[in-house]
Each structure stands twice: as structure tokens, then as C-alpha cells.
């Protein structure tokens, strides 16, 4: 019984460690004074400031474009990949290969992609970031869809085919509706990762088109400015919202 109390206390401290800094940013974003240590009253002033910031809105748009593009492609390729992997005998080498982008340090992937785009003389732009994000997002979508497929009742597909439905019709009428929650959850995760990804975007972005994380990096490198708090609150809330929705659709299980 005493060990239960101790565990509860320890875990509470861990949760405080995880959430206190985030909650602090959220509270400060509504602080009119803009100082971390003096409360100047509740205000939406810093949020209004953000709307005036052209460079910031532009970067946010860039991020949305990259995230949408990379999500669309990785949702399609990742779902097919999950189906393919589930259908062949378990192949450890193939598994390791597909999930390689998840374990390689992102700085290594980043310099490799930068070198590659430079080598084939492809100018750096939003397209090169999108291409790069697809590399690791495929693995995330595939992992989630695959968990969903492992609960899948194969006889339904068999029945559909036996009754004379062509394979493509069987896929759209039987397979896809059954795995759709997994595809949606995987896509939401992919979108969120892409939206927040910094290191690979930093190396594969063109000079004139930064994404939001790249812009945030350049802002926070030179110290604390109060409008970053408001921006941080919006970005953190958006990610959290997307992930909670993904959780509803079958969740983030399938990683460990």
C-alpha cells in the first residue's frame, strides 16, 4: 500500500514536469505586459500582433501546404505498404528497412537529403521539404494501419471475391471501410508530425520559403519575445487537438 502512494507521488511529479512548462507558456501568452514575471492583465494583444505579422502568416501557410502534400502521399503509400507487409510472410529485413527512417537520427537524414537534392541539382523549395517528410511519414501511417489490419477478418474479403466482386471493388467496398479509422488516425499523425518537424525542413528548405518551425527557430534563437508565446500556444493546441482526434479513431497504438 505504501509503495502505491509513493508511485502515485512520483508519477504526479513526472506529469507536472511534462505539463508545467507548457501551461506556463499558455498563461504567459495572455499576459498583456509581455514579461514572464510581471502580470499586466489578461489580454489577447499578442494574438492580435501575430495577425499583423506577414512573414509569420506566410510561414504558416507554407507549413500547411507541406503537411497536406506529405500527408496525402504518405497516407496512400503507407496504407498500401501496410497491406503488402501484412500479406507476405513476416520478413524482418523488410520491416527493419521500412522503419529505418524512424530510428536514424534526423540530422543524418537531413544532411543526406540536402546532399541528394544538391547532387541531382533540384532547387530547394517547399517541394523538397514535402518529399523529405514523406520518407518518414510513410512509416508512421504504415505502422498504424498495420495494427488495424492485424484485427482484420480475412474471410470478408474472401467472401466478396467468391461472390464475384472484382479486386478493386472489394478493396473500396470491404477492405477500405474496415481499415479507414486506421488510415484516418495515421494521416492525422503524419499531418501533425509534418507540421511540427524542424530539423529536416531546416536543411531541405529554400532560403525564401521557411516553414513555421524554421521561423520559430530563428525567432527564439535571439531570445524571448512575447509574441512567440501566443504563437506557441496556437501551435501546441492545434497539434494536441489533432492527436486527440487521432486517438478517437483508433489511436496511436502500433508503435511499441
Amino acid at each position: 500500500m505504501r509503495s502505491q502512494t509513493w508511485l502515485r507521488f512520483h508519477s504526479s511529479l513526472v506529469y507536472i514536469f511534462l505539463y508545467a512548462p507548457i501551461l506556463m507558456l499558455i498563461v504567459l501568452s495572455f499576459n498583456r505586459s509581455g514579461l514572464p514575471t510581471a502580470w499586466g492583465g489578461f489580454s489577447l494583444y499578442w494574438y492580435a500582433e501575430l495577425l499583423q505579422n506577414r512573414a509569420l502568416l506566410n510561414a504558416a501557410l507554407n507549413s500547411l501546404l507541406v503537411a497536406s502534400g506529405s500527408t496525402l502521399v504518405s497516407a496512400a503509400f503507407g496504407t498500401l505498404l501496410a497491406m503488402g507487409l501484412e500479406r507476405i510472410a513476416r520478413n524482418l529485413v523488410l520491416d527493419a528497412f521500412v522503419f529505418l527512417p524512424m530510428i536514424i537520427p534526423d540530422i543524418v537524414l537531413a544532411i543526406a537529403l540536402l546532399s541528394f537534392f544538391t547532387f541531382i541539382e533540384m532547387p530547394l523549395s517547399l517541394l523538397t521539404i514535402t518529399i523529405s517528410h514523406i520518407v518518414f511519414n510513410i512509416a508512421f501511417v504504415a505502422a498504424i494501419v498495420r495494427t488495424r489490419l492485424s484485427y482484420f477478418d480475412n474471410t470478408l474479403e474472401e467472401a466478396s471475391l467468391d461472390l464475384g466482386a472484382p479486386p478493386l471493388k472489394t478493396f473500396f467496398k470491404i477492405t477500405l471501410p474496415l481499415i479507414l479509422p486506421g488510415v484516418i488516425a495515421g494521416s492525422l499523425l503524419a499531418f501533425t508530425i509534418s507540421l511540427d518537424e524542424f530539423v529536416i525542413a531546416f536543411f531541405t528548405a529554400g532560403p525564401a520559403q521557411p516553414t513555421l518551425p524554421i521561423l520559430i527557430y530563428s525567432m527564439v534563437r535571439f531570445g524571448v519575445t512575447p509574441d512567440v508565446n501566443a504563437l506557441a500556444t496556437i501551435v501546441l493546441s492545434l497539434s494536441a487537438l489533432l492527436i486527440l482526434i487521432a486517438q478517437r479513431f483508433g489511436g496511436t497504438e502500433g508503435f511499441f
Partner: peptide, 27 residues
């Protein structure tokens, strides 16, 4: 979910939160 949630949000911003906490004029 409460453990995973921060991981899915921007690491860069969560790092920035520590600058606000730990800097000379910080919390």
C-alpha cells in the same frame, strides 16, 4: 495519452518554454 501528448507537439516550442523558465530574466 497524457504522457504521449507532449511528444506529438512541437519539440522546438517545448524547448523554448525552458528558455522562458531558465533565462536570466526568467521565471
Amino acid at each position: 495519452v497524457l504522457v504521449i501528448l507532449p511528444f506529438w507537439t512541437s519539440y522546438l516550442i517545448r524547448t523554448y518554454a525552458w528558455i522562458v523558465l531558465l533565462n536570466r530574466e526568467g521565471v
